[in-house]
C-alpha cells in the first residue's frame, strides 16, 4: 500500500506541476456545461439526463489525454527502467498511476456539482438519477482510464497512445448500440451488448443502481489493469 501511495502522489504531483490537470478540468467543465445548458433552457425540462448522456462522448475525447502520458512518458525518458527496478511490484506501479488519473476524474466530477445543484434548485428532480449518474460516470471514466493506461503502456509515443485509446473506447461505446447490433442476432448480439460500456452506463445513469453493472465496470477496470501489468512484465520474457 505504501508503494501505491508513493506512486500515486508522484503522478498526481506531475499532473498538477504541469498544466495538464488544469487544462483538463477547464476543458471538461466548459464543454460539458456549454453543451448541457445550450439546450437545457430550450427544452424546459428539469432533468440532468441530457448532461449524463453527453458525458461518455466527452470522456471519449478528453480522458485519453489524461492517460496518454502515464507510461509512454516513462518509456521515452527512461523512467521505466528506474521505476521497475525499484523494490515495488509492477502491479503497484500500475495501480498507483491508475489511481492518480482517477483522482483527477473525481475532482472533475466534483466540480460539476454546481451544474447539478442548479438543476436541483430549479425543480423537482429524481435523486436516484443524480446519484446513479455520478456513480455511472465515475465507473465509466475509470474504465476508459484503465483502457487508456493500457494503451499508453504499449507505445512510447503519446499521440499514438491517445489515438488508440480514443479508437478503442469508441468501439467499446458503440458496440452495444442498436445500429451496430442490427446485423447480429442471438448470442453475438447479447455478448456485444454485454461487453459494451454504454448499456451498463445507461442503466446506472437512468437511476437504476444495479450490482451487475457496477461489477461489470470493476471487472473491465481490472481486466485492463491486468493487461497493463502483463505488458510491463513482458520485458522479462526469456527469449
Amino acid at each position: 500500500m505504501h508503494n501505491i501511495i508513493a506512486i500515486f502522489k508522484k503522478e498526481l504531483r506531475s499532473y498538477f506541476n504541469s498544466p495538464i490537470a488544469y487544462i483538463f478540468l477547464v476543458v471538461f467543465l466548459v464543454i460539458a456545461n456549454w453543451l448541457f445548458f445550450g439546450s437545457f433552457f430550450l427544452n424546459g425540462q428539469v432533468t440532468l439526463r441530457p448532461f449524463f448522456s453527453l458525458i461518455p462522448w466527452i470522456f471519449l475525447i478528453i480522458l485519453p489525454a489524461l492517460t496518454m502520458r502515464l507510461w509512454s512518458d516513462e518509456k521515452k525518458g527512461g523512467g521505466m527502467e528506474l521505476l521497475l527496478t525499484l523494490p515495488i511490484r509492477d502491479s503497484e506501479a500500475v495501480f498507483g498511476k491508475f489511481k492518480a488519473a482517477c483522482a483527477i476524474l473525481c475532482i472533475t466530477l466534483f466540480l460539476t456539482a454546481p451544474t447539478a445543484l442548479t438543476v436541483v434548485f430549479l425543480g423537482n428532480i429524481d435523486g436516484g438519477e443524480i446519484i446513479g449518474g455520478y456513480i455511472g460516470a465515475y465507473l465509466l471514466g475509470c474504465s476508459i482510464i484503465a483502457l487508456g493506461a493500457f494503451m499508453s503502456s504499449i507505445t512510447k509515443n503519446q499521440i499514438v497512445a491517445f489515438l488508440l485509446s480514443v479508437a478503442l473506447s469508441f468501439i467499446f461505446l458503440i458496440i452495444g448500440q442498436d445500429y451496430t447490433l442490427a446485423p447480429f442476432s442471438g448470442l453475438i448480439a447479447s455478448i456485444l451488448n454485454f461487453v459494451s460500456f454504454l448499456p451498463h452506463y445507461q442503466t446506472l445513469s437512468g437511476g437504476l443502481i444495479s450490482g451487475g453493472d457496477v461489477v461489470y465496470f470493476i471487472g473491465m477496470i481490472f481486466f485492463f489493469l491486468f493487461l497493463n501489468t502483463k505488458v510491463l512484465e513482458s520485458r522479462q520474457y526469456r527469449g
Binding site: 508522484k10 506531475s14 525518458g77 527512461g78 527502467e81 528506474l82 521505476l83 527496478t85
Partner: peptide, 13 residues
C-alpha cells in the same frame, strides 16, 4: 541502488 545510463528524472519535479 541503480543509476541507469539514461539518467531518468522527472523534469517537472
Amino acid at each position: 541502488g541503480y543509476l541507469p545510463e539514461s539518467v531518468p528524472l522527472y523534469d517537472d519535479m
